[in-house]
Structure formats: C-alpha cells, structure tokens
Design a protein around this nucleic acid. Sequence first.
DNA 1: GTCTATACGCCGATAGAC
DNA 2: GTCTATCGGCGTATAGAC
Lengths: 203, 203
Amino acid sequence: MDQEINKEQEKLKDKEAQSTEILAASLKLFAEKGYFNTSLADIADASGVKSSAGIYKHFKNKQEIAQALYTWIIDRLNVSIDDIRRRNRKSSEQLREIVDLWFRLTDEAPDIMQFLLVLKVSEFLPDEKPLMQTAPFVKIHKILHNGIKNNELKAIDSQRAYCHFFGIIESTLRQVLAGDLSKKAEYYEGDAWLTAWATIVKK
Amino acid sequence: MDQEINKEQEKLKDKEAQSTEILAASLKLFAEKGYFNTSLADIADASGVKSSAGIYKHFKNKQEIAQALYTWIIDRLNVSIDDIRRRNRKSSEQLREIVDLWFRLTDEAPDIMQFLLVLKVSEFLPDEKPLMQTAPFVKIHKILHNGIKNNELKAIDSQRAYCHFFGIIESTLRQVLAGDLSKKAEYYEGDAWLTAWATIVKK
DNA sequence: GTCTATACGCCGATAGAC
DNA sequence: GTCTATCGGCGTATAGAC
C-alpha cells in the first residue's frame, strides 16, 4: 500500500514536473518570439510534450499558461521585495537591493526580465492587473513614498521619483536585453545605480 | 482634356486619401490593441473601406501596412532631427529640442509615441531595422557623442548616456501613455528635462 | 474597376481510438 | 489515461460576378 501511495506521489510529481516544463518552455518562447508568434505546437515541442493536445492535460488553454507565468513571476518578485523590506530600514538600502535584484535577474533569468520590461502583457492578458498595480510594484512606490516622507529623498511625488530612478535602471536593462549594450548587466550596475540614485536623493 | 486630367488627379488623390485613412486607422488600432489583436476587418471598418478585401487595393498585406507606418514615422522623426541639428549648435540645445519634440508628440500624437515606445516592432516586422539602428536614433547617439567629445557632457560612452538621459524621458512618457501619470505630458516636461540633463552634463 | 462571396491555411481545441 | 486524428473558427487573401 505504501508502494501504491509512492507511485501516486511520483505520478503527481511527474505531472507537476511536466507542468513546470511547459511553463519554462513557454516563458522562453514568449520572451523570444512573443505570445502571438508562439503556437501550442511550439510549446509542446520545446517542453517534450508529444503534441499540442498534451498541453490541455495541464492548462485549459494558451492564455492560462501566460496567466500562470505572470502570477508566478509577480509572486516571486513580491516575496523578494518583502524580504528586502524586512532586512533593510533605509530607502537607500532597500532601493539598492532592488536594483541589485533587477540586474541579477537580467543576467540570470533574462526571460523573466523580458517578460517584465518588454512584453506588453495587456495585449494577451487583458484581464490581469497592469504591472504597476501589482503588489510588488505598489510596494516599491511605498518605499519611494516613505523615503520622501522622512526626507531621505527629494520632495517630489513618488510617481515621478519612480520614472526618474527606475527609468534609468530599466532603460539600461532593456538595452542589455536587446543586445544594444554588449556586456553583462552586472557591468553597468554600479554606474546606473549611482546616476539613478543621484536623481532622487535629497542633497 | 484638362478636365480629364483633373478627374484622373482627383481619383489619384482619392486613392491616396484612402491609403492615408487606412494608415491612420491602423496606427490608432495598433496603438490601442496591438498588431495581432487588430484584424483587417477592424482596419476596414475604422477607415471607411467597405470590406477587408478593399484593403488589398492599397497594400499587399497586413504587414505592409505596418511597414509603411513604421517607415513613415521614422522618416518624420528623421526630418525633425535634421532640422533640430541644423538650427542648434550645442548638444544641450539639440537635446532640449528633442525632448520637447518627444513630449509634444506624446500629447499631440500619442499613437505615434505608443508605436515608438511601447509596441514591440520586431514581433510583427522581423525584417525591419530595430529602432535604435534607424537614422534618427543613430543621429541622437551622434549628438550625445559630440557632446561628450567637446566636454559639454560627462565622459561616458554614448550608449550609457542614452540610457541615463532618455531612460528618464521615455519612462515618464510611457507612464503618461499608460495613464499612470494623470496629467498631460507637457506638465512633466520641465522636471524630466532638468533631471535627465543633470545625469549627463559635465559639472 | 469595385465589391461580394468564397477559398484556404493555421491554430486552438476536442473527441474518439487504443 | 494517453495520443492520434480531426474539427471548427478566425483571419488573410483571392477570384469571380456585376
């Protein structure tokens, strides 16, 4: 009987492993070619599923795959942001760590960053919250807001602070992702941080 | 005979006027819903062409419409940039005018700016040059490069100068286009310019 | 030469066979 | 319960009627 249970668990594990495969393959393909240029056949091929029909064992349709990816990425960011806020008090430290996370993700998981910075999610997930209204980004605004309130940052609204600070960071990362900047993101991090920080710090 | 010629010319004009209608409608729809969510039927409806078949009198396929739009926008920018470079000597003046153009376009022709800043052109025009390699953007890099050479700007590479300077500008405009910043672009221009300029000016 | 009617291909989705 | 074979719909593109 124990064996039966183990068998069951293994099957479940296999099934979940395959779902993960499908998500991983989809992430890669969406990042490379975009959502609409990626067919279920492409995803099946890339994830080792025999045919496009096999996908439907795991997801009810193509959009649900994108949804699962989106919420997975957002949740992951959210956890990281919570962790960063817990471990650091000052806005400067929190922002420094967020920047570090952004640059590390760009080098280590460029597909995720492509999803966040380049893909236009609302085109294929019209019912999902826009990125800027999701939990992690709301929290980033909160960090900026707090920094402004306690005089660590310049007295501007947090929206504009976001544009100035993250404009520089995101623009740099977009160009790395596009190959317009040839070195790894890491190479540009220090410079980008210093410049971005200077735009919002209270002097 | 003169009348005949006039008739011919009028016909041509009508035909060209309708092509323009199609392009205008396409620009609007692509900016709103994206290229893949826009069908030829949508374009026909929005441009007063009776049916999707009528489009083929003017363009050989959907992609050619997008191509025509893209080159039209790039050409228009190119002319403006040339004009700006002709009328101004200093990098600071040239950049100031480019920023002004960017902000004015965002308020007056948001669809064009959406096309430039938000749409991922390579997804539906895989054979076109990426934006950063088109004439107007190469010229912008030249402006930055010159500014660095003659010590008006900080001694960094023009790629990074672009990210820092235009990162702020473009991020602000993206948020205006998305509705995350509630006022007209114009409202944010002065602040964005000052902050962006401070990131690259030699102090 | 213009529009209607239709063909064709692709892809997402299903149903039925093994 | 897994895969193959197929369906149906949409959207691009054409061909034929007027």
